[in-house]
C-alpha cells in the first residue's frame, strides 16, 4: 500500500506562488474576484501564507505554502455528518463532492484552515472553460473542496502501473505544485517506501510538521534550518 506524503523545503522556497497557480490551473479552481477575495472567499488549495514582524531594520518575513496536510488522524473527516470526506487507504484525505451537503463542520475543525467552501457557483468566462482539465470534477456552489494531492494524477500513474503490472515508481506521481516549483522546494512520494526521497527527508533533522502538538499526524512535512517558531 502506498502512503502519499509531501515535503516542502522552506530553506529553498522563495514564496513565488507558482505552486498556487499550478494547482488552480490543474484542478479547475476558480478565481473569486476582488469583492469575494476581500471576504476571504478565494480558494487556494495551495495557499502561500505570510507573516511580517519587527521594526526597520530588524524585520522578519516568513512564507509558508500550505496545502492540505492529509492528516493521518484527520479532525476534519470524523466531524462530517455524511462522510463526504474520508481518509482513503493510501492516506489521502479525499472529498466526495457530490455527497457533500455543505455544513462546513470539516472546515471549522481543520486546524490548518485549508478547506475551502464554494460560497457561490464557481464562474468562469466562457473562453476560459476551454482550458478545463477534464480529469477533475467540476465543483458547484454549496460544497467544500480542498487539495487532494492531485488524486487524478495518482490515479493515472496507478492505471499505468497496473497495465504494466508493477508498482508506481518513485517520481512517477508528480502533483502540479511539485512539478512547477521553480526552486525545487517541494517533494512528493510514498512515505511507506523507506528509500523514497520524501521518507528520507521526512526524517531529516530539519523536518517538522505544522501544529505537531495537535496529534493530527500530518503527511506534509516542512524542512527548515534551526528553530522553527512560526507555529
Amino acid at each position: 500500500m502506498y502512503r502519499w506524503g509531501m515535503v516542502i523545503d522552506l530553506d529553498k522556497c522563495t514564496g513565488c506562488q507558482a505552486c498556487v497557480i499550478a494547482c488552480r490551473q490543474e484542478n479547475n479552481v476558480s478565481f473569486a474576484g476582488e469583492k469575494e477575495s476581500k471576504l476571504g472567499r478565494a480558494k487556494f488549495w495551495m495557499n502561500l501564507v505570510s507573516e511580517v514582524k519587527g521594526n526597520y531594520p530588524d524585520v522578519e518575513m516568513r512564507f509558508i505554502p500550505i496545502p492540505c496536510m492529509h492528516c493521518d488522524r484527520p479532525p476534519c473527516t470524523i466531524v462530517c455528518p455524511v462522510a463526504a470526506t474520508y481518509k482513503n487507504p493510501e492516506g489521502i484525505v479525499a472529498q466526495v463532492y457530490p455527497r457533500c451537503i455543505g455544513v462546513r463542520m470539516c472546515i471549522s475543525n481543520c486546524p490548518y484552515s485549508v478547506r475551502y467552501f464554494n460560497w457561490y457557483e464557481p464562474t468562469w468566462p466562457e473562453e476560459y472553460k476551454k482550458g478545463f482539465n477534464p480529469d477533475v470534477y467540476q465543483r458547484r456552489k454549496g460544497i467544500t473542496e480542498k487539495c487532494n494531492f492531485c488524486i487524478q494524477r495518482i490515479r493515472k500513474a496507478k492505471e499505468k502501473a497496473k497495465r504494466e503490472k508493477r508498482r508506481i515508481r518513485e517520481g512517477e506521481v508528480i502533483p502540479a505544485c511539485v512539478e512547477t516549483c521553480p526552486s525545487e522546494a517541494i517533494y512528493f512520494g510514498d512515505l511507506n517506501d523507506s528509500k523514497s526521497q520524501v521518507s528520507k527527508l521526512s526524517k531529516s533533522r530539519r523536518a517538522f510538521r505544522l501544529l505537531e502538538e495537535m496529534g493530527t499526524e500530518p503527511k506534509v512535512y516542512y524542512l527548515k534550518e534551526g528553530e522553527w517558531n512560526g507555529g
Partner: peptide, 15 residues
C-alpha cells in the same frame, strides 16, 4: 467527467 456520476463512495473528484 464532471456531472455524470451519482455514486457516492467512489472518488468522484477524480477520474
Amino acid at each position: 467527467a464532471t456531472f455524470g456520476m451519482t455514486l457516492p463512495e467512489e472518488l468522484l473528484h477524480a477520474l
